[in-house]
Nucleic acid binder design. Structure first.
Length: 427
RNA sequence: GUGGACGUAGUUCAGUUGGUAGAGCCCUGGAUUGUGAUUCCAGUUGUCGUGGGUUCGAGUCCCAUCGUCCACCCCA
């Protein structure tokens, strides 16, 4: 047992039992992205460490203790990407895609964070994200949220997720507020619990979210963000809310909603669920107008979000199973050497003429009984039979495996028509 | 990084105050020699996570280690 090589902790295989959920999500997103005019971008999994330090923030948990960082052979410090936005922005700047033009982009793929694994949290996990560049107004924020809402609708998850919204103000307003908070908490250092002490250095806004009663009391005395929120941001936020109301998307304003990554400003949002234990956030994002300049670009407004595919898959697998996709339409059973030879030809002809057909051919011989057993187990709707009798008459037998119906021997032309109906779900 | 629970056949699990292992599912074969899913019969499956220790003897007790799960933290 111990001699078997195991997968790395927190890095999971996606087995056939689960993969159809992944495909369903990825297909839905790809279609929706196109429907809203977003193009896919694919960037490397590894980037220079510096990129993440500069974009995510030096003192965030992610950068301080969760990155998979190593030295390349030439001494460069490289890092497995812990999130997708940094690489996307880097690529966009490098290729000049946002020079005097707007872009709507999306990406998907694995991300890596060295955290303790638990439900909905893994060391290699998959995100799908979308980013829009050079749109300054709230309309694009609304568009991204509407797109996600439509995705939940298509996946049947609408009832399980709720939308939380907040505004962090402009970078300047946020910075000013942050400073005021730090100053306030520094004056009350002795009253801070251990968590808050730590947050004071890393993410002071998070202290406001503390569950410790003593901290809650202290927080009541802390400076209020509303005193620092700039007029433009307030306006932006109000317009966003109006648009969402107009299209009937329910939301909840959560003043304590603070995203963990340093680069956010103005709009932030999260889709949360209570069906996943401690990992409630299924999709989250916001505006990061300042990031492109931080990374050496010219000033470029930007918004985006990312969703965790594993968490969506968890939600999907809690639902009653719909029809399992990818089950074969037909399973070809062959008896005898001649039939085996002919079966290969028949199967290829059918696939040639019916590209939609999912046909499994039996391989490996065995008794007819065992072949039928496997045909049944495959989930196929019908079995096709090729044996001595069929070969002699130049026909193929078709036996329904689900519901009622008699076995019949058919010419290839009739068989083709029947299988076509099967593909179209009209059998 | 911190805390708790748990690691027994492919899988889900049982294994009583310590006496070298079982069940369901799955799988394979059979019930008049070309027919599945139901029924019946038969059969295979394991260095009991790993390494030490206590003991005449450990799946069962102790220690260590690795791993899984859950929560804290953090986040998608």
């Amino acid at each position: 047992m111990s001699q078997k090589i195991q997968a790395i902790r927190g890095m999971n295989d996606i087995l056939p039992e689960q993969s159809h959920h992944w495909q369903r999500i990825e297909e839905a997103v790809a279609t929706l992205a196109a429907a809203y005019g977003y193009c896919e971008i694919r960037t490397p999994i590894v980037e220079k460490t510096e990129l993440f330090k500069r974009s995510i923030g030096e003192v965030t948990d992610i950068v301080e203790k969760e990155m998979y960082t190593f030295n390349d052979r030439n001494g460069d410090s490289l890092t497995l990407r812990p999130e997708g936005t940094a690489g996307c922005v880097r690529a966009v700047l490098e290729a000049g895609l946002v020079h005097n033009q707007s872009q709507r982009l999306w990406y998907r793929g694995p991300m890596f964070r060295h955290e303790r694994p638990q439900q909905g949290r893994y060391r290699q996990f998959y995100q799908i994200g979308m980013e829009a560049f050079n749109f300054a107004g709230p309309d694009i924020d609304a568009e991204l949220i509407m797109l996600t809402a439509r995705l939940w609708q298509q996946l049947g998850l609408t009832d399980q997720v709720t939308l939380q919204l907040n505004s962090l103000g402009s970078s300047a307003a946020r910075a000013a507020y942050r400073e005021a908070l730090v100053a306030f908490y520094n004056q009350h250092q002795s009253h801070l619990d251990a968590d808050s002490q730590r947050r004071l250095g890393s993410n002071p806004l998070r202290i406001l979210d503390s569950k410790n009663p003593d901290m809650v009391a202290l927080n009541r005395l802390a400076p209020a963000f509303s005193d620092y929120l700039d007029v433009a941001s307030r306006d932006h936020f109000q317009q966003l809310c109006e648009m969402l109301e107009r299209v009937g998307i329910a939301y909840e304003v959560n003043p304590l909603l603070v995203r963990g990554l340093d680069y956010y400003s103005k709009t932030v949002f999260e889709w949360v669920t209570n069906a996943l234990g401690a990992q409630g956030t299924v999709c989250a994002g916001g505006r990061y107008d300042g990031l492109l300049t931080q990374l050496g670009g010219r000033e470029t407004p930007a918004v985006g979000f990312a969703m965790g595919i594993e968490r969506l898959v968890l939600l999907l697998s809690q639902q009653p199973e719909v029809v399992a996709a990818n089950t074969p339409h037909a399973y070809l059973v062959v008896m005898g050497d001649a039939a085996q030879q002919q079966g290969v030809v028949l199967a290829e002809q059918l696939r040639q003429q019916l590209p939609q057909l999912r046909l499994v051919t039996h391989c490996g011989g065995g008794s007819l009984k065992s072949q039928f057993k496997q045909a049944d187990r495959s989930g196929a709707a019908v079995a096709l039979i090729l044996a001595a009798e069929e070969l002699a008459s130049g026909q193929v037998s078709l036996k329904p495996l689900r519901g009622t119906g008699e076995q019949v021997m058919l010419t290839e032309a009739v068989l083709l028509a029947k299988l076509q109906n099967l593909c179209e779900g009209e059998y």
